[in-house]
Design a protein around this nucleic acid. Structure first.
Lengths: 216, 216, 216, 216
DNA sequence: TATGAATGAGCTTTCATTCAT
DNA sequence: GATGAATGAAAGCTCATTCAT
């Protein structure tokens, strides 16, 4: 057999597809109903497999949650890598890159959605979840810190570490607002575009030595 | 009888005190263990009443959660009102008020802590929770929008609505970071003070027409 | 609360009766179907209570099994004590006492029956069961050793310890045969009386310096 | 096809070897972990065949258990036959033959060990197991009865049938004690040798018209 | 009215058995 | 024929809710 971290590593294409479907189903259900409310039966049924089959691929419910976290990270990091490549190819001023970054973060979160909430939830209770989440955070933060560091001459802030951390927080929070609570936005008489323009403006003012003139 | 929104409105002082204790106990347990892990038996026992008595005061487990949300709002809004009064009494430039606001938000969250996490959790699955949360948000946002509006001459942003919304998001997110994930902060080589100074700086640059010179 | 060794010690008469019924039902079902085949649902239903109620009285399935062992021991030891008293009152030659002992052992086992088999079964897998069983054995063996020791002048064997152990084995085995496998006996063309007379005869020849003349 | 009593009767040598291995593996696992704890997956894996192949050779789990019983009987009866032959060759007094018989029984049980326990277990719940066990018992008892009958002039008991039955019981019980519960023996301050000498002594006193003088 | 024992639906997980490959 | 992944019924146990006292 071929087990690793409570997950079965399938050799065959069909098995891989099945496991894929299970992770996908779990991701959706965790996002929709939360970790506790989403039952393994639900997940299996939603993936079109029998209850027992779930346990061929994952040692227990937590294992599939961790797999979902990995999946979610892959997506985010895949996007981040693509973005980084694009930024490398056509160099533009940081002011415009910040705009891209904000738009990208929102799009990336649109897929991961409610699942993130569950991670925050289990973070407290479970050490494995906490470790994985922190690891991911650290990686993204490091990437952003490097990004800022190599553009230091454009910055007004000295403390690049702290700036990266706060920028990331703002990006995430804005994405949450835009994606998860669109209803809130509407009720507040706002819309996504108006919010995001303000976010970009705020980050520019905060980070850049020479922000573009004009408000959001 | 006198039921309202799944809660019993007690006439007698003793009953009022009991209900009080139940909400208090629930708030603590929800924050500590989460909505699902905190059992009604736990809550009742922790409040010093019998399991069955719980259901004299609340229609079900969700009802006490909503009551906790009200309680949590009362606290926040009480603090907000006190802050507003203080701001009214000794008028200082918005730049300094922003500093106060950030510190206050962190302190306010320190008390409500884990419970907030649960609200975010149930927000998605439950319409009542969502409605209540939105209502609260709206009220706080309106307050902040008014605060900014009357200091319009100090602002560089025109869209006060959007600015209030974004400012609130940043405040909340920063509070979460500072209060809930201190461990993360430490691991990232940061500390609360460094984070908060950056938050204040960012908000000043974003909001103020004439921000104080110097970085965070 | 009042928990002890995975068992709830009820204060009230009604609760006591319920627990009683549960132990009784468990004893019967374990004897009839074995530990694994007897489900907690079965036990609860057979005792006339809900599944969940089972777990108010016993921490888990093993706990009720241990309770059954205690119950079974109480019965055996109660009988042994009564027998010992009777033996004390009207002193008769050991030869006749052995007859009594055999008859008594059979009767005692008739009640406990198949449950004993389960004890033997779980003995191997579970340390708690093993400890309890060994303790009981030791106590009975000690009692029998004392019985023989004070009648030493009637014995032909010197090694009272070993004699007591073997006698006990023979008693138990004979009781099993007589009680559990009556069908076997019948098929073998035997009957209980014929078997027991042989047992008594064997023990007399083995133990007594001066066994009564004549065969079984 | 060629099915019989839930077992497939293979024609080919390779298939025969496979079935053999399955029975052997099952025997070991039943003895080690018990009927319920030993899974068909375990058994198949331990025999080096696929899970599904198990069901080509046995209708279900019970079928392999019955096959194990047959296998166990073959062993016992093989040993009995060998013993009988040896007894036929060098005729010695029954007193010495009893000693051999006791030692032999213990050795025979040492191999079958835990499996016997499982038979006792399933005996009650399952008619087929009971029938098979009874059949085996009957055969051995008949053999012992014949053995005693042809040595009738050395016996003090008349009822050879009953004597054979009881002797067998004692042999089995002693073997159990000696093999399975060595720990118990030690705790009781005894050892195997001391127990077995007493058993031989007891059987001699019980069976023989002219037992050797001296105690165990 | 307050109590807390009783309820039972529903959860996660296991495993004898089947069946597509 | 052999394989081992897939199946799903059923296990032990929990807990929101009810109800007799």
């Amino acid at each position: 057999m071929n087990w690793e971290n409570g997950e079965y590593r399938p050799q065959q294409a069909r098995a891989e597809a099945r496991k894929e479907r299970l992770v996908e189903a779990a991701l959706a259900l965790f996002a929709e109903k939360g970790f506790h409310a989403a039952t393994t039966k639900d997940i299996a049924a939603s993936a079109g497999v029998a209850t027992g089959s779930f346990y061929r691929y994952f040692r227990d419910k937590k294992a599939v949650f961790l797999a979902c976290m990995h999946r979610s990270e892959e997506r985010i990091m895949g996007g981040v890598a693509a973005l980084a490549r694009r930024m490398e190819q056509d160099r533009v001023p940081l002011a415009r890159e910040l705009d891209r970054l904000v738009r990208f973060t929102v799009e990336a979160h649109r897929e991961v959605r409610g699942f993130h909430r569950e991670v925050l939830q289990l973070l407290i209770a479970d050490a494995d979840v906490a470790a994985l989440a922190r690891e991911r955070e650290t990686r993204v933060r490091a990437w952003l810190a490097r990004l800022l560091a190599v553009r230091r001459e454009q910055l007004r802030v000295d403390d690049v570490e702290a700036a990266a951390a706060l920028t990331l927080d703002v990006l995430e929070e804005a994405a949450h607002r835009a994606v998860i609570f669109e209803a809130d936005l509407r009720e507040a008489g706002l819309d996504e575009e108006r919010l995001l323009r303000n976010v970009v403006d705020m980050l520019r003012r905060y980070l850049l030595a020479d922000p573009p003139p004009g408000g959001p």
